[in-house]
């Protein structure tokens, strides 16, 4: 945005140029990522990064603190896993179906929640997400505590086998880039301008004739859909949908990723997701400590890096170039 001209180099001034630069940069980073971390972790970083970008659309740009995004991620994961396992859909159709289910759920939960703001909004989204959680605990098709094991990953379009991690990684990267492009465009669109206007001053946006409820609902639905895209991808990658996907700690983790990386920045959620996934992976053997360290991190980032890794870095950068 033209808000901080001094922090943006001239060649990145136009929104289109910046979008392209982000995409090329992320594609390059994504190509190099498997050289640094093992494939499954790399894929986790990608789908969780996408989830965090989707969450950031709502939290960072519209300023709404939702606490139930696990419902969209988790429902999509279950729907996708169920459809590829029981109905025998190809992975891409399973992912599409999961995304659609999350979008529909997002429209419903959004419609119920956006009438409230602040803490009430957070509480309603949490409560409704818990309804989805308990539904998936009980529903016969979701296989209770075990979750849905999908078996082999199947063939993309019925042709390309995803059994080996390389092809799976490429597909995950493509989904990630597409999802990121959608979120990033939404943020840098006339629609995105309205979202940030609502975040800055909702009564003013209303007084200019914007029906802010509709903008919030569309943003919520879009955020839910992309969260679903991430969740459905997770089901294919890990060949599993389980209660962890829809548990409220998942909603907390996506919030944490955005806070760590930098709220309302394009790349922050991805950085946050990478930090978080890498940390979970490293701590996986230490068991109970994960929770404690997660809590400490949360406090640490909120207190020390108030604008997250990316926000703080770009702030430093802006000060140097000024």
């Amino acid at each position: 945005m033209s808000g901080k001209p001094s922090s943006t180099p001239a060649w990145l001034a136009s929104p289109r140029a910046r979008e392209l630069a982000y995409l090329v940069g992320l594609a390059a980073a994504g190509a190099l990522l498997p050289l640094v971390v093992y494939p499954t972790l790399a894929m986790k970083i990608l789908y969780f990064g996408l989830f965090a970008c989707a969450y950031n659309l709502l939290f960072g740009y519209l300023g709404l603190l939702a606490f139930g995004h696990a419902a969209f991620f988790g429902l999509a994961s279950y729907v996708c896993a169920h459809l590829v396992t029981v109905v025998g859909l190809t992975p891409e159709l399973g992912i599409l179906a999961g995304t659609a289910a999350a979008a529909a759920l997002g429209a419903v939960i959004g419609w119920l929640a956006i009438k409230r703001t602040g803490l009430y909004f957070a509480m309603i989204t949490l409560a409704l997400a818990q309804v989805v959680y308990f539904y998936l605990v009980q529903a016969p098709w979701s296989m209770g505590e075990d979750g849905i094991q999908t078996g082999p990953r199947g063939k993309l379009f019925g042709v390309i086998s995803l059994a080996d991690n390389t092809s799976m990684y490429v597909v995950t990267l493509v989904i990630f880039l597409a999802g990121f492009a959608i979120v990033n465009r939404a943020v840098n669109s006339p629609f995105g301008e309205v979202l940030t206007a609502i975040r800055d001053n909702e009564p003013r946006a209303v007084s200019l004739g914007y029906d802010t409820r509709r903008f919030k609902l569309l943003a919520f639905t879009l955020s839910a859909a992309i969260s679903g895209l991430a969740g459905a991808t997770k089901a294919i990658v890990l060949q599993l949908a389980n209660l962890g996907d829809v548990h409220f700690s998942m909603s907390g983790e996506v919030l944490l990723a955005v806070l760590i990386g930098g709220i309302g920045t394009a790349l922050g959620p991805i950085v946050g997701a990478a930090v978080l996934m890498t940390m979970f992976d490293a701590l996986a053997k230490t068991g109970a400590w994960v929770q404690a360290i997660q809590g400490a991190l949360f406090v640490g980032f909120v207190l020390l890096l108030r604008s997250g890794v990316v926000g703080t870095l770009s702030g430093l950068f802006a000060r140097k170039t000024r």
């Binding site: 929104p15 006339p190 629609f191 301008e193 569309l218």
Partner: peptide, 12 residues
């Protein structure tokens, strides 16, 4: 155009 989330804000 305010609902067009697929359109670049360069349009503005």
């Amino acid at each position: 155009v305010s609902y067009r989330f697929w359109m670049s804000s360069a349009w503005l």
